[in-house]
């Protein structure tokens, strides 16, 4: 039988372990005007092809497949951080190989997708991969297809956490902090840059139309029509 002293020590050890344990990423709900617009299309038609470029989300798969749509899932941020993609440039610095990245990712037939959920990918992806990725998305989308992208505003700050997005309703999203899993330690993606409105317009200049929604949480939602 454990003595009172043992129990007291166990109590203190237990509480200190709890204090040092990493916090479980909390989920937070937010309204999304961009998602509301996408949902109008998802509710009005069946068997659309939807590409989700975020981390695997059971909520998103459930939401999309329950409406009779085909869900394609590809975690592009994780793929972009693959060490096997790195090559040395002329200065000897390791940079991602754009050609290899596009040979191995987003390899779909042209004009396949009605909807692409890009989430906050451009903010966290390496600079040299962003434009080629958007160009490839343009190619794999149907004319008239919708693309939803989120950008941080300058107010977010450089340490703004990277979130994954779970669709919980026609205009509701749940956000959860991303912790990427790799072969080694878990990585936490860092905000690479902040796009201003002109940067965003240039990035998507091949798209037919662009619509901005400014949210309260220092996020600009951008809805594009291919």
């Amino acid at each position: 039988m454990a003595s009172v002293a043992d129990n007291v020590m166990r109590f203190f050890r237990g509480s200190s372990d709890q204090a040092s344990a990493p916090a479980v990423p909390q989920k937070r709900s937010r309204r999304s005007s961009g998602m509301a617009e996408i949902s109008r299309l998802l509710n009005s038609e069946e068997s659309l092809c939807v590409l989700d470029l975020g981390s695997t989300s059971a909520s998103n798969i459930r939401f999309l497949t329950a409406k009779g749509h085909k869900n394609y899932s590809e975690d592009l941020l994780q793929a972009s951080l693959d060490p096997a993609l790195r090559v040395k440039d002329e200065t000897g610095k390791l940079v991602p190989d754009r050609k290899k990245f596009l040979d191995e990712n987003l390899t779909y037939a042209n004009g396949l997708f009605d909807v692409v959920l890009c989430w906050n990918l451009p903010d966290y992806m390496e600079e040299s991969l962003v434009k080629p990725t958007i160009d490839r998305l343009w190619s794999v989308m149907k004319p008239g297809g919708l693309l939803l992208v989120f950008f941080h505003t300058r107010d977010a700050g450089p340490d703004a956490p990277c979130y994954r997005f779970h669709i919980t309703g026609t205009d509701m999203l749940e956000t959860q902090e991303v912790r990427l899993t790799g072969t080694g330690d878990k990585q936490i993606p860092r905000l690479q840059r902040v796009f201003n409105n002109r940067n965003i317009e240039n990035l998507f200049r091949d798209f037919a139309s662009i619509k901005f929604f400014l949210a309260r949480d220092a996020i600009r939602e951008v809805l594009l029509v291919r």
């Binding site: 695997t56 059971a58 798969i61 009779g68 085909k70 869900n71 394609y72 899932s73 590809e74 975690d75």
Partner: peptide, 18 residues
């Protein structure tokens, strides 16, 4: 039907047969 636990990783297409 498909059930996916949080933490699972999936890359590809999901087609739910009605």
């Amino acid at each position: 039907r498909i059930a996916i636990e949080d933490g699972a990783s999936f890359q590809g297409k999901i087609d739910i047969q009605r």
